[in-house]
């Protein structure tokens, strides 16, 4: 119970570092659109495989931490992460049965939803125009899912079976 939660926070820490690690100074700012959302992947993994330990409260705090490292409005990621955790929790038994490709598709839809919500919030908050470039993050994040799954699954197995 406590061990998956600890593992969640540790892996989330790694994900946060990956989230803010700087691009080379010469890279165009637009390259930022292609960043995978590591924290969403880690959150989805643990919600799916350890739903008794990692829930919506953890997701909310994780979202606040992401807000803080990315400098977005406090609560923006917290809101989307709670929604992601809720969806993950209610579907976790089905998600576990899916193949990696199907799971990646779910990741794509999840991140797309989160990005659209974020873009809406930004539009409301500061009149920022929509950019279709927001489609890249879901694609790249979905492509990274097998990677994250492959890295975390052995850790999950080592921690013992879930309920």
């Amino acid at each position: 119970m406590a061990r998956p939660l600890l593992a969640f926070w540790l892996t989330l820490g790694v994900a946060l570092v990956l989230t803010v690690v700087a691009l080379p100074p010469l890279a165009p700012p637009a390259l930022g659109w292609f960043r995978p959302q590591w924290a969403v992947l880690v959150l989805l993994f643990w919600v799916m495989t350890a739903p008794e330990a990692v829930g919506m409260v953890s997701a909310w705090v994780a979202g606040l931490l992401v807000d803080s490292v990315t400098g977005s409005l406090l609560g923006q990621h917290a809101l989307t992460y709670v929604l992601i955790a809720w969806a993950g929790l209610s579907l976790h038994q089905r998600l576990r049965m899916y193949s990696l490709v199907q799971q990646a598709l779910i990741v794509f839809l999840t991140v797309l939803g989160a990005e659209v919500l974020a873009a809406l919030l930004l539009r409301l908050a500061r009149g920022q125009a929509f950019s279709l470039a927001l489609l890249w993050a879901p694609v790249v994040t979905a492509l990274c899912w097998p990677l994250v799954y492959g890295a975390l699954a052995p850790l999950r197995r080592w921690l013992g079976p879930s309920l």
């Binding site: 803010v20 700012p29 637009a30 990315t70 930004l122």
Partner: peptide, 13 residues
Amino acid sequence: IGVTPDPRRSQLI
């Protein structure tokens, strides 16, 4: 020591 990862924002740390 850092820049925001969000391509819509212009921030440094």
